[in-house]
Deep mutational scan, measured.
Amino acid sequence: MATGGRRGAAAAPLLVAVAALLLGAAGHLYPGEVCPGMDIRNNLTRLHELENCSVIEGHLQILLMFKTRPEDFRDLSFPKLIMITDYLLLFRVYGLESLKDLFPNLTVIRGSRLFFNYALVIFEMVHLKELGLYNLMNITRGSVRIEKNNELCYLATIDWSRILDSVEDNYIVLNKDDNEECGDICPGTAKGKTNCPATVINGQFVERCWTHSHCQKVCPTICKSHGCTAEGLCCHSECLGNCSQPDDPTKCVACRNFYLDGRCVETCPPPYYHFQDWRCVNFSFCQDLHHKCKNSRRQGCHQYVIHNNKCIPECPSGYTMNSSNLLCTPCLGPCPKVCHLLEGEKTIDSVTSAQELRGCTVINGSLIINIRGGNNLAAELEANLGLIEEISGYLKIRRSYALVSLSFFRKLRLIRGETLEIGNYSFYALDNQNLRQLWDWSKHNLTITQGKLFFHYNPKLCLSEIHKMEEVSGTKGRQERNDIALKTNGDQASCENELLKFSYIRTSFDKI
């Protein structure tokens, strides 16, 4: 039985969820670079991206490699990797027998973001014989899940209580170790020597080791999670996991709180800001991140802002960003909400898709409305799209047979046209069989910064309504002859009103 693990408890099935942008060198404390989270699957090609990484700022997932063999891993080693800020997950990587050479110096898994409450997941690794993470000293947050690894031993010899604050939620089941077939031998045991430290858990006094050649490092209890030197002297209180010299914040392997210019500090002093819960960055760093993602459509890219001495992905609820200094300031009234469309555009074809934009005031991208039916549609669209004030790209209304009016965009005031449909149009209306009105132009103002209007096959939309939009939106004169079809717009509506004058002759039985 794995020490510190839980057996036999019912657990939810383990679901495996399925960018080499360097964020800056980590400095003297770390020998390499800070790398983003990685999802490495199918083959070993991307694994080489770990070569210079000291910190993975995010998670590391290595999974679904069915053609790899043990010899493929023999020359692979990433000794610079010290810390993973989120979680480490391995799933069905064939041929991998140990992690001792792959990650010989991995010391800390912070667990800032977890995989279903777990910071370390080893699942269905069919050839893994031992973990071998002999320098792993601290899992700051989260638990361990090690399950269905039929060859995995050296679990009962690990004292997880020396690595985690609590072992109650560890789930370590259905491994070879369960069948008591392992016969784990710690260093020196074969020669009758006791080389590794022994600890007591559940009444068992057991030597602690990761492999037959690597003991588990056990520091004096007084050192807590700070770690200790090879001689057993406690590291500085700002260290986490390990250090090369005692009581020196510049000799830590990793930091308990924050890293700044080669030393570990309790908090980031001005003019620095907390970033990702582990390091200090200056304003320029946060500003660069903001600008890199301002026009990016890459998933996970955030326009970072500053709030409460932190550089964070977005302002919290009730705050909006001051564009001059990136500071989050309290909103006066309802907060603006910028919604970034991942692929640059979004099609609204149902109430469900409209709900995804609920509360958005600025759309960074283009909207395509293609709704053919739905219950209580006008009210639903207004509830979900009615706060949109600005669209950076274009607005396209296409084959939306259920629409009679666009009044559900009740606050839309600006279409920038930074991206144009077919390279020309910022407003595009095609084949809307029941569209009769755009907006009530006596109450609604709309500016279209650039781009043209396109109207074709809107049989109940009168040309007068379209011409009014040209005047109000500032697009009059931009359109070419064929942009607004004269014969297919309003051709099934009563669009022309003329005053009919009647004269009559009164007659009676005795007068003409």
Rank of each mutant, 00 (worst) to 15 (best):
K224M: 09
I109P: 00
R41G: 15
K217L: 07
L88N: 01
V93S: 02
N149V: 02
I122L: 13
L164T: 13
V305Q: 05
P104S: 02
Y319R: 07
N170P: 04
L174H: 06
L60I: 10
L96K: 00
I222Q: 11
L128S: 02
T320M: 11
R297D: 14
T157C: 02
F285C: 14
L88S: 02
T140F: 06
S98G: 15
P316H: 13
C328D: 00
C264D: 01
I158A: 02
E314L: 04
L133E: 00
D261C: 05
N308P: 03
E180P: 08
T211A: 03
L164K: 14
V55W: 03
Q303A: 03
G227W: 04
T320Q: 11
D39W: 12
T107E: 04
S225K: 05
I40W: 13
Y154L: 03
C280Y: 00
F275Y: 05
L164H: 11
E314K: 07
G37Q: 13
Y273E: 14
S324N: 08
Y134L: 13
N202Q: 04
C228I: 02
N149I: 00
S317W: 00
S77K: 04
N322F: 13
G300M: 12
I122K: 00
S225E: 06
S213W: 03
G227I: 02
R263T: 12
C264Y: 01
W160M: 11
S317I: 08
P336C: 05
P249V: 04
M321T: 10
V206H: 01
T157D: 01
F103T: 02
E57M: 14
C243H: 00
R256P: 03
V200W: 02
H127D: 07
N117W: 14
S225G: 06
L164C: 15
G111H: 05
L102R: 01
P104C: 02
S324E: 14
G232C: 12
H48C: 12
I158C: 01
N195K: 09
T221E: 15
G203V: 10
D165I: 07
R41C: 10
D39L: 04
C328V: 01
N170I: 12
M137A: 11
Q204I: 07
P70M: 13
D39M: 08
I82T: 14
G32K: 04
P104I: 02
D39R: 05
